[in-house]
Nucleic acid binder design. Structure first.
Lengths: 204, 204
DNA sequence: CCGGCAGGTCTGTTCATTGAACTTAGGGTA
DNA sequence: TACCCTAAGTTCAATGAACAGACCTGCCGG
């Protein structure tokens, strides 16, 4: 491995937009990163939430690690989780502008599914990511994701989608409810082991 | 035609980011739109500047017209130009965030190739697209593109790239210098026919 | 009526994506 | 020990897009 063949090279397009797209412009890449922001960290959780072919997910995670957007960490022998690095966190404005545009121009079918709120005061963030009540742009650790008016109409019903419906802080690992098998002891015990690092959103 | 098969459907990802990517997430699409903002309007100019396969360009332009991002206009019988619509202009924040990230994180090899300046006062715009001198965010019609410190090192040398090195207002049609053949009469006469419409950048 | 140009379409090949099956390694249960 | 489970990959055949290059068409100017 460590082969980095992957097309998507706009090599002769010497412009910052093309350079950015070389790194995050491949299919699925942005959605993987979005999930990282929402708190997804594990291979199988990405898989369940994205419906992405396993091989493609492997490929995208590898590439993001190589490019320094994510770091891989063994939370128990042989099992990895993927965390946003400083560089990965710096992608936030791109995700934010895409989300804003998607909300404005690609009409949500029944209100937003997810809202972002300032934990301190409970106020919903405005379009620019600022807290209207406090007049500041909260750090990542102080932002909570919670279900919006359209949440009930979710098209999906996997564990990760369900976990995302429960209010939780951004970047914090999700509380996944195991499908069946109540006795998956050793995995459960690791679920909350990886606490939020000193990740901060550059601007939100 | 008017077939809209094209994959790239993240249909089950009911989230604004996924919806945005369904419309502008395909390969080349963003670069086509970037060129529109720079002033490129014609099939052959996109072709020369992007090194994109003709069939793919046709496909992307068709799709963008269908989705209402561009409008097609016959500037002389049988020849089209492509103009950003209001909806297309609303993509600016996405391009801007990509360009910012590309400049910060995917290091420009020798300074920026293009700078944006406020025409009224000649001041370079800041990262948010505002004029530091006037304290306003100028409309598209008042923004000028001009070569930056890295412009000389351009990797490309097609007509469009050369045209982009000459200062000009954003969204205005480019002054393409015909390669050879000084006597391409009827085309020249149309070059400046299509004046800037009332396009305005929603925020820059 | 010839050549050039804008704006495409057609074609064969290459490359990426997909879904499904298979692999590896550790752990729990009986 | 034998058996089953889960996480996290890898491998593979089939499909579908992207690619480069040749070809086509309508219009023009000389």
């Amino acid at each position: 491995m460590i082969v980095v063949p992957l097309g998507k090279d706009y090599e002769l397009q010497d412009c910052p937009i093309a350079r950015a797209l070389e790194l995050v412009g491949e299919r699925w890449t942005i959605l993987v990163i979005r999930d990282c922001f929402l708190g997804v960290r594990r291979f199988n959780d990405f898989l369940a939430h994205l419906d992405i072919p396993r091989a493609v997910l492997t490929n995208r995670l590898d590439r993001l690690v190589i490019e320094g957007m994510l770091k891989r960490r063994e939370y128990c022998p042989g099992r990895n989780e993927y965390l946003l690095t400083k560089r990965g966190l710096s992608l936030w404005p791109i995700l934010h502008s895409l989300a804003e545009w998607g909300d404005q121009e690609a009409a949500p079918r029944a209100g937003r599914r997810r809202l972002f709120a300032h934990v301190e005061c409970g106020t919903d963030l405005d379009a620019a990511g600022a807290c209207p009540a406090c007049g500041i742009v909260p750090d990542a650790g102080d932002v909570e994701i919670r279900p919006g008016p359209g949440a009930e109409l979710a098209l999906r019903d996997d564990q990760v989608t369900r976990a995302l419906l429960r209010p939780h802080r951004i970047l914090e690992p999700l509380e996944i409810t195991p499908a069946r098998s109540t006795r998956s002891g050793h995995v459960r015990s690791f679920r909350r082991s990886a606490q939020a690092t000193e990740q901060r959103l550059p601007s939100m």
